[in-house]
Design a protein around this nucleic acid. Structure first.
Length: 304
DNA sequence: AAATCGACCAACCGCCTTTTG
DNA sequence: GCAAAAGGCGGTTGGTCGATT
């Protein structure tokens, strides 16, 4: 049996709010506050609206200091960066942008920003193809901005737990695994091991569960390690964000590339937006690997 | 001028989490 | 400790409007 509805749907008005309704709700809340009970509020005011609807109307349109439209370039970058790193957690993203609501940001992302980002990505691909010549990839460092070569796990300026200890979204690690010329990922009990052969080097990342932040660590369990679901678990990091602290990964330093003069969250540039594109794209991918046997063990290999 | 299409966005829906009794 | 109520959130829908055919 499902939950009882929060209000009597037959007796509540739906659809757009009239100026009179807005005025009633606004003046009441400004004078009395919400009283900590949205469900009871419409009855008190004499509005034939669902309490949830009142809450939404207040939060998204009536409360003071709300900004609508006119997103700045800086706001775009913040939204893109956060989306790439934490996914569609609109309320968290909105918390970083004073005056913006989660609904507004969500609409803005879905209607404009996503296309803008993908448009940039196409441009970037074309430019890269032109540059390619003999060299497939290049690392470009310019005045503090960072460009991320494929196969390199990025540091992110967000999600800093402590100074000089930047977590790496495993989603990024996963996305870059997809870009390798060959890659095998093995997840034995309690450990995530990624063996990657990039054009730069061959390296091996071993992560124990306690190197993954607890919020999502349970997506990798012993149960899933030896099943083909394991990468669905991996894939879920794209939206759930498991983070890895590079300082806790032996010999990992060489894997990470970023602006060399930036060692903490302070005064970090959001970076070139194009560097986010590959992350975003990869985060959208849900490529499931093939199970293969290698030296008697089961592995999951991704075709790239 | 009418029809169609696509972009935009306010509002709703349903699920999950938190609070309360 | 449990169940119900309320809050909060993200995905989706549907109405409106401007551009295009």
């Amino acid at each position: 049996m499902g939950r009882a509805p929060c209000c009597d749907k037959a007796n509540v008005k739906r659809g757009p709010w009239s100026p009179e309704e807005d005025a009633k709700l606004k003046s009441y809340i400004e004078e009395h506050g919400t009283g900590g009970n949205w469900i009871a509020l419409p009855q008190k005011i004499g509005l034939k609206r669902c309490g949830k609807s009142c809450r939404l109307r207040w939060l998204n349109y009536l409360r003071p200091n709300i900004k609508h439209g006119g997103f700045s370039e800086e706001e775009d970058n913040i939204i893109c960066s956060l989306y790439v790193n934490i996914g569609s957690r609109w309320s968290i993203i909105a918390a970083q942008l004073p005056g913006r609501t989660d609904n507004d940001i969500k609409n803005y992302w879905n209607t404009k920003l996503k296309k803008k980002l993908l448009g940039k990505q196409r441009k970037e691909h074309h430019a890269q193809a032109r540059r390619a010549g003999g060299l497939k990839q290049e690392i470009k460092r310019e005045s503090g901005d960072m460009m991320l070569p494929v196969g390199v796990i990025s540091r992110t300026p967000h999600w800093s737990y402590e100074q000089n200890s930047w977590p790496i979204p495993l989603a990024n690690a996963y996305s870059h695994l997809n870009n390798q010329t060959s890659s095998i990922v093995h997840i034995p009990d309690s450990t995530v091991t990624a063996i990657m052969n990039s054009q730069y080097s061959s390296f091996d990342i071993s992560l124990t569960q306690d190197q993954l932040y607890p919020s999502t660590v349970n997506t990798i369990t012993t149960d899933t390690c030896h099943t083909s679901n394991v990468f669905q678990g991996f894939g879920s990091f794209s939206s759930d964000l498991a983070c890895v602290d590079p300082q806790h990964i032996d010999g990992s330093e060489g894997l990470f590339y970023g602006s060399t003069n930036t060692t903490s969250t302070e005064s970090t540039s959001w970076g070139d937006i194009s560097s986010l594109v590959s992350h975003y794209e990869a985060c959208q991918q849900r490529i499931l690997p093939q199970e293969v046997t290698f030296e008697g063990s089961s592995y999951f290999a991704m075709q790239t």
